[in-house]
Simulated assay, not measured.
Amino acid sequence: MPYADLVTRLRAGLEPVTVGAFPDGSVDDYYRLRDGESTLASRAAFAAAVSEGRDSFGLDHVTTDAGGQAVNAARQAAALGDDVTLVGHLDHPVFDFDFETASMGSPARVRVCLFDADDVMFVEESADLAAWTFADLRAALGEPIDAFLERDALCCTNWASTPGLGAAMRDVGARDPDGGVCCVDPGPLTTAGARDLLAALPALGDAYDLVLSVNDAEAARLAEAVGDGAGGEPTDPAALDAVRTAAGAAGVVVHGVEDAVAATTGGRVSVPTLDVSRALTETGAGDRFSAGLARSLAAGWDWPLAVAAGNACASHYVSGQGTATPASLAAHVSTHGPPA
Rank of each mutant, 00 (worst) to 15 (best):
F97P: 14
G227M: 02
G81M: 00
V271Q: 03
D29Y: 10
A147V: 09
F57A: 10
M104A: 14
G229E: 09
F46D: 05
A70T: 09
V333W: 04
G205K: 02
V307P: 09
D118G: 03
S56K: 10
V211I: 12
L86G: 07
D29H: 15
T273S: 12
M1D: 04
L137S: 14
A140D: 12
M169S: 00
G193H: 03
G25P: 15
N215V: 07
L129M: 13
A260D: 04
A331C: 03
A262I: 01
V120F: 05
F57D: 06
V120Q: 13
A217F: 14
W301L: 06
T157I: 00
A225N: 03
H92F: 14
G320I: 11
Y317E: 03
V94H: 12
A41V: 00
V7K: 04
S334N: 03
A66P: 15
R111F: 13
A324K: 08
T283F: 09
G227W: 10
G36I: 07
V120D: 05
A340M: 05
L240E: 00
L201W: 02
R9F: 01
A21Y: 07
D29E: 14
D98S: 15
T265G: 11
C113H: 11
G231M: 09
A219Y: 08
T8N: 03
V62F: 09
P107G: 11
L210W: 07
A298W: 05
E100G: 12
H255I: 09
L149S: 09
T85E: 14
T273C: 13
A199G: 13
D5I: 01
E218M: 07
A230V: 06
T8I: 02
P339I: 08
C113S: 10
T133V: 10
V71Q: 13
D228C: 10
L165I: 13
L114E: 08
P338Y: 05
D98W: 00
P304M: 07
A247M: 11
A230I: 02
G337E: 05
D55Q: 14
D83G: 05
V123Y: 02
A199M: 07
T190L: 07
V19W: 04
D146L: 13
P93K: 11
L204A: 01
V184W: 06
R278C: 14
A306N: 01
E224H: 03
D96C: 12
D98I: 08
P2K: 01
T283M: 00
T162E: 00
L129Q: 14
R54Y: 10
A102Q: 12
E258M: 03
R221K: 12
